[in-house]
Design a protein around this nucleic acid. Structure first.
Lengths: 244, 244
DNA sequence: CGTTAAGTTGAAGCGTCTCAAGATTGGTGG
DNA sequence: CCACCAATCTTGAGACGCTTCAACTTAACG
């Protein structure tokens, strides 16, 4: 994990043309609304895999929309264990804090090379004041992130490891599909076994065992940064299994 | 668990006089603001311990502020296991959904006899439109609930059972103290061993074993609806232990 | 005081963890 | 293009934490 390095991307993108806008904070509004909002953008950044975007306790002055790539958000416990809170995909909103007094409660790292759209806290506030639909949209985003966190908490707390893994992939694949990714092809998966293990609350070694099982059953194969789905239906069956 | 039964409480309370208002949604605003808001209230309800306030999938038309008593919010998995998401205390906001299209993603049950202040979704929307400070306050509440969920997820996923229990109590006691409860006295605890077990992700039997340990070490004693703290400092040490 | 619900304890089994060795993959330089 | 290296993943064996089932104890309540 290196220290945060932000570079302007080669080709800045206009919000109006942005391919993930419909999934993102700027989903509502007309084209003119959107270009007006863009004027308040603090910038677009490119970062490399492994770079830390922000860390627990930071008094970050900016909030971000992930435009390209994958981001892992996590918390580190006193004992050093890491819990992955969620995997952010293009269009996802990260780094928001309602109170700029306190530092943020979790960290975020680029899992792949990424591009971020940044807004300063003050500009974001200004935007929301002049455009209530953005405040409502923020409330919607917060709620859907909270829902995802509750779902994750429920299965991490209650389901056996194999089902947790199936649930993790089931959710991830659904979100990838939403973003137009063909699930029948091989997918670049910029998550290590350890990332996934930390997300579902098992050790990497045990993650390996259960993921071997799924591979031998021809359900899903994820290794060395690649993901190949063998039987999506069966995966969902395991995720929804009521006998576990 | 019986079906929802709501009765008007014997003595309705004005928001201005409400003892938990400073912790609640109506924290911001002048006295006149607050009585204006009260006019849009749908009602105050009393419910008994064990009654279900809402259930996963419900298209609830109201949102609530808990005025008195304790509420347990939870999710049930396909296999029938229950994960307690959080324990709501007086002043806490529950039942909110950003989209009234979909049903709610979790359930809520009264752990003790309770009193609720209710607002219809439409009145709440109207309130927020005419009073942006309420929208900002909602964003703040959502964020702090999401933060609590992330914290819970982290320790349920990563910490050993005894530390999880210490963390659960540590958090709960801090919130009770915030509400003016004297931690040196005996406290009425309307949570069963099973509620707590479902919150920290262990079986009731194992919860019993670790809670026996804490009792024998004179740290905390929680049984039969009563809670007595022996050594709060030591409890927090176990919760923050970095060797676990 | 008797009944019922709640909590405790023991013993055995299973799931997950730890430690350690070995295999596979992707990247790098010869 | 191949050989080698480092990183990632796999597998085995043993230990440990948590679960299960069942019997027992304690507290609350009428």
């Amino acid at each position: 994990m290196s220290r945060t390095i932000k570079i302007k991307p080669a080709t800045p993108v206009n919000c109006v043309d942005c391919e993930v806008r419909k999934l993102a904070w700027f989903e509502p509004g007309s084209e003119t609304d959107i270009s007006r909002r863009q004027a308040l953008r603090s910038g677009q950044y490119a970062m490399s895999a492994g770079e830390v975007i922000y860390q627990e306790g930071d008094h970050q002055r900016e909030i971000y929309t992930l435009r390209k790539g994958w981001v892992v958000r996590y918390k580190i416990l006193a004992g050093g264990q890491r819990q992955v809170l969620n995997v952010a995909l293009p269009g996802d909103f990260i780094g928001f804090r309602s109170s700029s007094q306190e530092g943020i409660d979790h960290s975020a790292v680029a899992a792949s090379d990424i591009e971020l759209c940044a807004f300063s806290q003050s500009n974001a506030q200004q935007l929301m004041q002049s455009d209530p639909s953005l405040m409502l949209r923020l409330i919607e985003i917060q709620d859907s992130q909270a829902q995802a966190c509750r779902t994750r908490l429920a299965y991490v707390g209650q389901a056996p490891a194999k089902q947790r893994l199936a649930m993790f992939f089931s959710d991830l694949l659904q979100r990838l599909e939403q973003r137009g990714i063909d699930l029948s092809e091989m997918i670049q998966l910029p998550l290590t076994r350890e990332d996934i293990a930390d997300a579902i609350g098992v050790t990497p070694v045990h993650m390996s065992r259960i993921s071997s099982e799924l591979r031998k059953e021809n359900i899903i194969d994820c290794r060395y940064g690649k993901l190949m789905i063998g039987n999506l239906e069966r995966l969902k069956e395991i995720a929804d299994d009521d006998s576990a």
